[in-house]
Computed example of a mutant assay.
Amino acid sequence: MNDFTLEVAELTKTYNAGKPNEVRVLQGVSLSVKPGEVVGLVAPSGAGKSTLLHIAGLLDTPDTGTVTIGGTDMTNLSDRKRTAVRRGTVGFIYQFHHLLPEFTALENIVLPQLANGVTEKAAHARAMDLLGKVGIAERASHRPAALSGGEQQRVAFCRSLANEPALLLADEPTGNLDPDTSDQVFDALMTLVRDTGLAAVIATHNLELAARMDRQVRLTAGVLEMI
């Protein structure tokens, strides 16, 4: 039985290969993450962290190397199968919340569940439960424009976990927030992650936040190293 939710092995990725402006973004990157483990990915801008997260989450493909999720090699799956895995197994959080502005906080969390075949009643119950865990259940009927930046990002967290993924990938999830709000929102994210027991890779340039995760790795010039 495989003990890891996510395993990436010897990933390489080069943009503009063979051209004068060739950029080698990933150079033999390997990383394994267990269920219930939160890994902090520390990297400066342009170091390749977004590329690594996109490949790990099946949004992009490596030049070489493998991506294994839940013990299954995902590297050569068809686009249709990759989409199915992303929808049901992987949750994404970005620096900007990307909430649908015409829908309420509750509806933003319900919609991905309906698309995944969950009944409206069950989707509503899970959405309210998630909003309660991050402390904003009373804001469920508000649209994104009526929410603060911290509240918007908490809703985005809940939406990313709506379909009960096994793996969460977050790219600077508190990067747009002031320090105090960032700290509060990060606490809310960690509560969600701990309650669900999923595996998580959270990219951040904030070393204090990274230090609160189970372990940290640093990506520099396409090479991954333990901190």
Rank of each mutant, 00 (worst) to 15 (best):
K81E: 11
N2Y: 04
P62L: 06
N21S: 08
G197D: 08
Q153Y: 01
L130N: 06
L11A: 08
L52M: 11
E120W: 09
G46W: 01
A105V: 07
G117Q: 09
P35E: 09
D214M: 05
L77G: 03
T181Q: 07
V90T: 07
L189Y: 01
D180M: 15
G48F: 00
F92C: 10
L106F: 07
A203G: 10
L224D: 01
A146H: 13
A162T: 14
A199I: 07
E37F: 03
A17K: 07
A156C: 13
L198W: 11
L198R: 15
N76L: 02
E172R: 06
D73R: 06
R143I: 09
N21A: 07
R82H: 04
R87K: 11
H205A: 04
T68M: 10
E208K: 15
G88S: 08
L52E: 06
A123W: 00
E225N: 14
L26F: 00
C158D: 03
V42I: 13
G222T: 03
L207S: 13
G135V: 06
V217I: 08
L219D: 08
C158T: 03
F92I: 13
G91V: 04
R218G: 05
T14H: 04
V110P: 03
T220K: 15
G132R: 14
K133M: 05
T83Q: 11
P62Q: 11
P101Q: 10
G48R: 01
T12D: 07
N76P: 00
L26S: 00
E107Q: 13
R143L: 09
L167D: 02
G57S: 02
L177K: 09
P44L: 13
G149Y: 03
R212Q: 12
A211E: 15
Q27L: 03
F4T: 15
R80K: 14
R194Q: 12
L224M: 03
S45D: 12
L11C: 05
A125G: 08
G222H: 02
L168Q: 07
G149K: 12
L41G: 10
Q153W: 01
I93W: 00
S160H: 07
L209T: 02
R194E: 10
G197T: 07
E120Q: 14
N176Y: 04
P44G: 11
R159N: 03
V33C: 05
L219A: 06
G222L: 08
I202E: 02
N108Y: 11
T119W: 04
S30Q: 06
H97T: 08
S30W: 03
D171K: 04
A188M: 14
P62I: 04
R215F: 00
G117L: 11
G46K: 06
N21P: 00
L207W: 11
T191V: 10
E172D: 04
A9E: 14
L106A: 13
D129W: 10
L131A: 08
T66N: 11
V217P: 00
G149A: 06
L189R: 09
L224I: 01
D3C: 15
D60F: 00
E22G: 00
T66H: 08
P173M: 12
D187S: 12
L167R: 08
T191I: 10
H205W: 01
M190I: 11
P173W: 05
I202T: 03
R215Q: 05
L100A: 01
G70I: 14
L189T: 04
M226D: 15
V25E: 00
R87H: 02
G65I: 06
E164L: 14
T64A: 13
